[in-house]
């Protein structure tokens, strides 16, 4: 499976300025693993040390937030569009 991964503005400098990448994988976890092995500098912004999704990263398969599709186990089909967007949050924690 090859999916198109849309790269958010804040991660583009670490990826040579590209706006999207074709990445192989059949689950979100595989896609993110491939991406972070190719670009280790962004690993900390995508996943936690145990491989789960970073709290402040939103990942979508087409129109759906993968938190509702099984997180890193969410399946990815050929030509799916994966969008990565940093969460927009704040406050007095």
């Amino acid at each position: 499976m090859t999916a198109k991964v849309r790269i958010p503005t804040v991660l583009r400098p670490a990826l040579g300025g590209v706006t999207s990448l074709a990445v192989e994988g059949s689950t979100i976890g595989e896609i993110l693993n491939r991406l972070t092995s190719d670009y280790p500098a962004i690993r900390g912004q995508l996943v936690n040390e145990d491989g789960t999704l970073h709290r402040f990263l939103n990942v979508y398969v087409n129109d759906d937030d993968v938190r509702y599709l099984g997180g890193v186990d969410a399946p990815v089909a050929n030509d799916d569009e994966i969008t990565l967007l940093p969460a927009v949050a704040g406050g007095f924690l």
Partner: peptide, 16 residues
Amino acid sequence: AARSSRVYEVDSRVLL
């Protein structure tokens, strides 16, 4: 999305 008087988070669907 945080449903809080102390913190906020933009809903992930609205963000997309």
